[in-house]
Design a binder for these strands. Structure first.
Lengths: 137, 137
DNA sequence: AATTAATTCTATCGATTTACTAGACTTTAA
DNA sequence: TTAAAGTCTAGTAAATCGATAGAATTAATT
């Protein structure tokens, strides 16, 4: 399941993607538009900035805007930024790999292979969902 | 990601599936064999019993054994028993559906449709992984 | 230079969940 | 009767989640 943070991030990105080119959106505007607690959204936008999905302008008349094409922002990327690995166990993860501590033979645990199959299919599906694909509704 | 509980459950089921027909496995035997904390495993086995994956014999020489065919126990089912919904949001879930509280138009949230596509693909993949398929390694 | 309006940063908080552990109780075979 | 197993109910320490608070910084306008 997605965390609220990841869900809100997607909704915020969606909101930004729906705005006119060159429009800068204030946090409060996004919060109201997408129904997200404002203070919580502040943190999320900072995370999105660190992840180079958005950029910001400070000071009066400042706010946030997309710097990544809405066709290039996938559900997989947002998931990884906020909720981490897409695989079901760390030992089956591409980007967050860690060996299982409880597997006797450290090279291969009994679940790893099967979970990597799942990961490949889920990942492919998640890479197919972009902000652009969600906007067109 | 899977919880430890779900991971241990899978490993316990795998252990049971590898035993001879009619063999009854004691908790301590499974715990040692699959490297799972014994007291934690006790709870998990009770959950698996309530979920009708295994049954038990009490008293001396008691223990646990599979009552569901290893071909019929899928990753999807174990996930649902221990970690709940497979979908990324409750509003996109088949078995754990709940409407989102933060969506303005209650009928359709902007993410729901896309997340249902993911759910269908992930679910299909997870239904393809059975205990039997994991044993054959 | 002062004011205003915005982002940014750091800290904290309560509630819940997770991953266990402890111990008493019940059941069954020998 | 006793030993050896599962069953049940609590409890607990640590981490995570979903926020909230408030001060600091930045930038445009007056």
């Amino acid at each position: 399941m997605l965390s609220h943070k990841a869900k809100y991030a997607l909704k915020a990105l969606l909101y930004l993607a729906e705005q006119d080119e060159n429009h800068i959106s204030r946090t409060i505007e996004i919060a109201d538009g997408a129904n997200i607690p404002k203070k919580f959204l502040e943190q999320i936008l900072l995370d999105l900035k660190r992840g180079r999905f958005v950029s910001s302008k400070q000071g009066k008349f400042g706010g946030y805007y997309l710097i990544k094409s809405k066709n290039d922002i996938t559900l997989a990327e947002v998931h990884r930024l906020f909720d981490g690995a897409i695989a079901l166990l760390p030992c089956a993860s591409l980007n967050f790999y860690e060996p299982c501590s409880d597997c006797k033979t450290e090279s291969e645990c009994s679940l790893r292979h099967g979970l990597m199959l799942i990961r490949d299919k889920t990942l492919k599906a998640m890479e197919g969902i972009t902000i652009a694909s969600l906007v067109k509704k």
